[in-house]
Amino acid sequence: MSIRIGMGYDVHQLAEGYKLWIGGIEIPYEKGSVGHSDGDVLIHAICDALLGALNLRDIGYHFPDTDPELKGIDSKILLQKTMEIIRNEGYDLGNLDSTICLQQPKINPVIPEMQNTLARVMNVDRSKVSIKATTTEKLGFVGEGKGISAYATVLLVVSS
C-alpha cells in the first residue's frame, strides 16, 4: 500500500469586526479571524497538510490571497477543491489529526459539530477526522488573545 503523510500549520490574527470560523462552523465570539477568505485557520492547515503530502505546494499557491474572486470565500469550498485535487492524483484520506490553539473561547463543546462538518465536506467517515483543542497557558500571541493557530497531519492512501 502506498501512503503519503502531510503536515500543515496556519495562523490568523484575531480582531473585532470579523467572524470566527473554525472547522467549517461559525463560533460566536467578540473577535474573529482576519483573513482574505473567511479566515478558517483549521481548514487552511488541513488544506496545507493534504497538498503537502503529495508535494503539491500549499494553499496560497492554489488559492492565492491576491485573487479578488476568493475574497471572503467560505473555506469549506477551498477544502472541497483541495480534496478534488487529492483524489485526481489517485489518493484519498486515510485519517486526519489536528490541533487548534486558542485561548478563548473554549471550543471543546463544538468539536463534534466540526468533525461532522469536515467529514461531510471531505466526503469521508467522521471516524477519520480527529480534532483537539488546547490553550497556550496565556503565553505568546495565542495566549494573549491576539491570534489563533492550528496544526494538521494527514495520512493519504491510494484510492481503491
Rank of each mutant, 00 (worst) to 15 (best):
L102W: 00
E113Q: 09
V121S: 02
N116L: 04
A119R: 11
T99F: 04
S98T: 03
I111L: 15
P109G: 12
Q103K: 11
P105F: 05
I107D: 00
T99V: 02
E113V: 12
S98P: 06
V110I: 14
K106R: 10
I100R: 00
A119L: 02
P112H: 06
N116T: 08
N116P: 01
C101P: 00
P105Y: 04
Q104C: 06
I100D: 06
P109M: 12
Q103P: 05
P112R: 08
D125G: 09
M114C: 09
S98F: 01
E113M: 14
M114I: 06
I107L: 12
Q104T: 05
P105V: 11
V121Q: 00
I100F: 06
N123H: 13
C101L: 04
V124N: 04
I107Q: 00
S127Q: 09
S98I: 02
R126H: 13
C101Q: 00
C101Y: 00
V121N: 04
V110F: 08
E113G: 03
S127E: 05
Q104N: 14
E113A: 13
N116I: 05
T99I: 11
T99G: 01
P109H: 09
I111P: 01
R126K: 11
P105M: 14
M114H: 08
A119Q: 06
I107G: 05
V110A: 12
